[in-house]
């Protein structure tokens, strides 16, 4: 018996990677094509379709809107989700079981239905501004992920550590920030990234909540491909990928470092 993985295993792993990477390769390739239509493999190399994104004002605007919504929605979801996950785990015995389930409900409802319900109740019902409706909608769809991921992190947290800190003279709220939060850092980072990406890529809920003048990037992409078949959508996708990776890197860095600095 050796520690080296079996060749068959390596083969399967390679196939899985190929399967995962192939669409990305195709998209990147198509984005770099010099043609006026979407094609793979690329014919000629050019960055003109990347340039084109910024020449179309709708793309410029929706990229900014999408980033704003994703960032704000994620932050709000964290502000609600972290205390909720904390309470659910800290008082697991005392709290009723269904309370935890409450936070998963938005995932259980088909997103289309959820989006439609939000449209009816928010935009139509209260006449809330489109941006606000979008923000609330996105906050609600990412909240379950935030609560889930941070709960998973807190499930392995030993709350007697918190009690030790309190017994040593640290007030409970302060203890939450100096002791509990640093120990679920990985969970907070994971929740941030997952929520951000979910929001940035959301179509179904946004479809209902976007309106005149305000849209999100995925909806704009949808609108674009209905009219044009040029490689712009591919280059937007590549841009979206890079944005996501950049945000992940920034979050890892800043959130990681703030916590380390206590």
């Amino acid at each position: 018996m050796s520690d080296r993985p079996h060749p068959v295993l390596i083969g399967i792993a390679a196939l899985v990677y190929l399967f995962l990477m192939l669409p990305l390769v195709i998209v990147v390739g198509a984005a770099l094509s010099d043609t006026t239509y979407l094609t793979f493999p690329p014919q000629g190399l050019s960055l003109r379709w990347f340039q084109n994104i910024f020449e179309i004002s709708a793309f410029r605007r929706t990229i900014v809107t999408s980033l704003q919504i994703a960032l704000l929605g994620t932050l709000i979801a964290l502000l609600i989700g972290i205390p909720a996950a904390y309470a659910l785990n800290r008082f697991r015995i005392e709290l009723p079981k269904w309370l935890g389930t409450l936070f998963v409900l938005p995932i259980l409802v088909p997103e289309i239905v959820f989006g439609f319900a939000l449209l009816k109740s928010l935009t139509v019902g209260t006449g809330a501004p489109i941006f606000l409706s979008l923000l609330i909608g996105h906050t609600l769809i990412v909240l379950p992920y935030v609560v889930r991921v941070i709960s998973a992190s807190l499930a392995s947290f030993d709350f007697s550590i918190e009690e030790a800190a309190i017994s040593l003279g640290s007030a409970p709220v302060k203890t939450f920030f100096t002791i509990v939060l640093p120990n679920v850092r990985a969970g907070v980072i994971a929740a941030f990234i997952l929520a951000f990406i979910t929001s940035l890529n959301d179509v179904s809920v946004s479809l209902f909540l976007t309106g005149p003048g305000i849209s999100t990037l995925p909806i704009q992409i949808l609108a674009h491909v209905e009219q044009f078949f040029d490689p712009t959508v591919a280059s937007v996708s590549v841009l979206l990928m890079f944005l996501t990776v950049a945000v992940m890197a920034i979050v890892e860095r800043t959130l990681g470092l703030t916590f380390l600095a206590k």
Binding site: D158, S160, I161, E163, A164, A165, S167, L168, I179, P182, N183, F259
Partner: peptide, 12 residues
């Protein structure tokens, strides 16, 4: 001063 069974040291 409290001493716990599972030590409860601050891991970070």
């Amino acid at each position: 001063g409290l001493v716990f069974q599972n030590y409860a040291l601050f891991p970070h």
